[in-house]
Amino acid sequence: MGKKALKAADDTEASVDMSPMIDCCFLLLIFFVVNATAITVKKDKNVKMPTAVASDELKKANGLIVVNVFNPDKMKDSSYPAGTIWASDERKGFSNEAELEEYLKTRKEELEKKKNEKGQEFEEVRLYIRGDATAPYKYTNKVITAAGKNGITNIVFGALPTK
């Protein structure tokens, strides 16, 4: 055989099989979706939320302190002492305003520390009040006053959309 015939026989086309790379990409995607931590608002089923025409769903839970306000006369769960305000994330009740103020102060400091360390995406600490529709305002007022004493000025009131 001549040189030209040998050269033509050596020219083979190289190709890369992309299917293993695609499989690897899908596996990584599934891994990150499964391991992503979703921040959700803890909801107490005993709070019967009021309805409002202009209510909207809470989109971001970053930087949120959730407090439940109950109607002490209509408590169904005996584990809740009458007339108390409860922190949703710790299921902790407050028997007086000083305890509530200390809790809000501690949670605010924790959230601001996490924001500075981890660079979480929220502008300021917000208080989310989930008040029972029949709860007297005096309990909600205690929460608002305690928040104001701790410099929490962004307060969100929970309500369900009117059907």
Rank of each mutant, 00 (worst) to 15 (best):
K3A: 13
E101L: 02
A38L: 15
L64Y: 00
A61S: 14
G2F: 07
V69R: 03
I22C: 00
W86I: 11
K42T: 10
S15R: 12
E57Y: 08
L6I: 13
A98S: 12
F122H: 02
I30A: 15
K114D: 09
E97K: 07
A9C: 02
V156S: 00
G119V: 01
M1H: 11
A147K: 03
L27Y: 05
V33K: 04
G119F: 07
D11F: 09
K118N: 14
E13N: 08
K60N: 14
K118M: 10
G148M: 06
K163G: 10
T134W: 01
P161G: 03
T134E: 14
N62K: 03
M1D: 07
E124I: 02
A9F: 13
L160Q: 12
A61D: 06
K113V: 02
V33I: 14
A9N: 10
E102C: 00
Y137T: 08
K113Q: 11
I144R: 06
V125H: 05
V156G: 03
K60V: 11
R126S: 13
E109S: 11
D17E: 12
D17N: 15
N141E: 15
F31E: 04
I152R: 04
V125C: 06
M18G: 01
N46L: 07
V33M: 11
S19T: 15
E109H: 03
E121N: 14
T84G: 01
I22Y: 05
G2N: 15
V156D: 08
K163N: 12
D17P: 01
